Amino acid sequence: MIKFEMLDDGDEWNRVVRASPYGTVFHTFEWMDVLEQQYKVQKIPLGIFENGDLIGVFPAFLQRKGIFNILVSPLHEAATPYAGPVVGNNKLSDVIRAFDIYSECADYYDITFSPGYVYDDNVLENLDFQERYTYILNLDQSIDIIWKNLNKKCRNAIRKAKKSDVTIVEGNSQRDLEDFWEMIEVTFQKWDTESPISVDYTRAVYDAFSQNEQFKMIFAERDGERIGGAIFLCFADKIYYWQGASYPDYYRYAPNNLIQWHIIQWAVQNGFRIYDMLGANIPSIAKFKSSFGGDLVSYSYLYKSHSSLADAGRGAYVWWRKNVKRDLYR
C-alpha cells in the first residue's frame, strides 16, 4: 500500500532523484527550497513509501489563490516545467490514486510529470488530462552525427555566426547575471509582456546551484558587446535549457544558434547524455528548438477540481494567464 510521509532529509531526497531516470533538477530539494523562499508558498516534500520502504519522492506545494487552497507539483509561475512523483513507472498509477486521496485537503490539484512516464488509462477516468511537448536531444552519440542531424538552416546560421566574428564566453558572477537580465527584459518587451519570473528569483537559483556547477551561463559576443545569452541547468546526466535572450538588433548574426551549438558540444565532451530544451508548446519557439535535431517528446499534465466552484476558478485563472498576462511558459 502506498503512503506519503514528509521527508525532510535533503541528502536522502536527492539520492532518490538522482538515481531515477525520471528525476530532474526541478525535483531536487534545493529547487523546492528556492521556490518556497521566493514565492512564499509551503513546500510539501512527500516521501513515497510502500510497506515501510522509501520507493520515491513527490515534491508538492500548497498555495493560496483567492479563496482556494491549491496543491501543485510543480509551481507553474516559477519557470518550473516538471515535478510530480519520482518513482518507478510500475508504481506510478498507484501513486496517482494515492495522491488523489491525499489532495482532498485542497480545493484543486495539478501535476506535470517529467517525460517518459506511461500509466494505466483507468487512472484518468476522474481526472482532466493534457499532453504537452518538449524537444529532447540524445547526446550519447558523436558530435559529427549530431551536427549532421541539425536542420540545414541551423547549420548555416551557426556558420554565419562564426563568420560574423561572434564568439562565446561563459559568465560566472552576479555581474554576468545582471547583463543577462537586461537581455531578458528587452526580449519580453518584444513580446509586449513582462518576464514571469523576477531577477531576485534568478539570483536565488544562481546562488543555490552555481557552487555545484549546476548553473551554466553562456554569452555570445561581437566586437566586445554581449548580444545574446542563455542559462542552462545541469543535473546527473541531463542538461536543461532554462532561459534564453538576445538583443533584436543582433538577430541577423544568429547568436542563439551559436550558443546552442556551444552547449551541445560542451555537454557531449563532459559526458551528458540528455539535453532537454524545455518546451515545444509555443510554435515560434518550438520551430527554433526543433532545428537542433532533437526528438519531439510528450509529457503529461493532470488536474482535478474537488468542487464546481474550484473548477470555475481554475478556468478563470487559465483565461487570465493566456489573455491578460500572456504567459509564455504555459
Rank of each mutant, 00 (worst) to 15 (best):
K3M: 09
F4L: 12
F4M: 11
E12Q: 13
R18D: 01
S20T: 09
G23N: 07
T24F: 15
F26A: 05
W31I: 13
D33H: 11
L35Y: 01
K43M: 09
D53T: 08
A60W: 05
K65Q: 09
I70V: 15
L75P: 07
A78M: 02
A78K: 01
T80Q: 11
K91L: 04
D94C: 06
S103N: 08
A106N: 08
Y109H: 04
D110Y: 15
Y117H: 14
V118K: 15
N122T: 09
V123Y: 00
Y135H: 11
S142H: 11
I143T: 14
N149E: 11
N149Q: 11
K153Q: 14
N156V: 08
N156H: 07
A157L: 03
S164K: 10
S164H: 03
N172R: 07
Q174M: 12
D176Y: 11
D176H: 11
E178F: 00
E185Y: 01
V186E: 10
T202Q: 08
R203G: 00
A204E: 07
F209C: 09
A236F: 02
D237S: 14
K238Y: 14
I239E: 08
I239K: 13
Y241W: 14
Q243S: 06
A245E: 05
S246C: 04
N257R: 06
I259A: 09
H262P: 12
H262A: 11
A267V: 10
R273V: 06
I274A: 00
G279K: 09
I282R: 02
I285L: 13
A286F: 02
Y299L: 00
L302C: 02
S305C: 13
Y317P: 01
V318D: 15
N323Q: 06
Y329D: 03
